[in-house]
Simulated assay, not measured.
Amino acid sequence: MAPKRAQAAGASAPPAVRAPARPQQPSLFTRGYRFVTSPETSSMVTSLAVFAVAVGVLHSSLAEALVPAYVFQISN
């Protein structure tokens, strides 16, 4: 009689031989979304968003509306 082949611990193996199923780790996007929406980090996320908007506005042409008119008269 030919010897039997050894089977890998896969789905066809008996339950006692099968490796225990590990829960799948969440993806990077999922972990990032959970971090941003967490109540523990809400104040930090809000302050970073306000800072980013402020930098964007001050870097754009809208910042000229914030400069007083007399600054342009003195420099010209």
Rank of each mutant, 00 (worst) to 15 (best):
M1N: 08
M1I: 10
M1G: 14
P3I: 08
P3S: 14
K4M: 12
K4T: 09
K4E: 10
R5A: 11
A6V: 13
A6D: 04
Q7W: 05
Q7E: 11
A8Y: 06
A13Y: 12
A16G: 07
A16Q: 11
V17G: 01
R18A: 02
R18Y: 02
A19E: 13
A19G: 07
A19R: 15
A19D: 11
P20K: 14
R22Q: 13
P23C: 01
Q24W: 00
Q24C: 00
Q24F: 00
Q25C: 01
L28W: 05
L28A: 11
F29R: 14
F29N: 02
T30L: 07
T30W: 03
R31G: 03
R31A: 01
G32F: 10
G32V: 06
R34D: 10
R34V: 01
R34M: 02
R34S: 04
F35G: 02
V36N: 00
V36R: 05
T37V: 04
S38H: 11
S38C: 01
P39N: 12
E40S: 12
E40C: 02
E40R: 15
T41E: 10
T41H: 15
S42T: 02
S42Q: 07
S42F: 03
S42C: 03
S43G: 00
S43P: 00
M44E: 12
M44R: 06
M44N: 07
M44H: 09
V45R: 09
T46R: 12
T46V: 04
T46N: 04
T46C: 07
S47I: 02
S47D: 06
S47K: 03
S47H: 05
L48V: 04
L48C: 08
L48M: 13
L48P: 00
A49F: 11
A49Q: 00
V50T: 03
V50A: 05
V50Q: 07
V50H: 00
F51Q: 06
F51N: 07
A52E: 03
A52R: 07
A52H: 04
V53W: 05
V53P: 01
A54P: 00
A54D: 04
V55L: 15
V55E: 11
V55S: 08
V57K: 04
V57L: 14
H59E: 12
S60N: 13
S60G: 13
S60D: 09
S61C: 03
S61I: 05
S61F: 06
L62M: 14
L62I: 08
A65H: 10
A65M: 08
A65E: 07
A65K: 10
L66Y: 03
L66H: 00
V67K: 10
V67P: 02
V67E: 02
P68G: 02
P68L: 00
P68V: 01
Y70G: 03
Y70Q: 06
Y70S: 11
V71W: 14
V71L: 14
V71C: 06
F72Y: 09
F72I: 00
Q73T: 15
I74C: 01
I74V: 12
S75H: 12
N76Q: 14
N76G: 14
N76L: 09
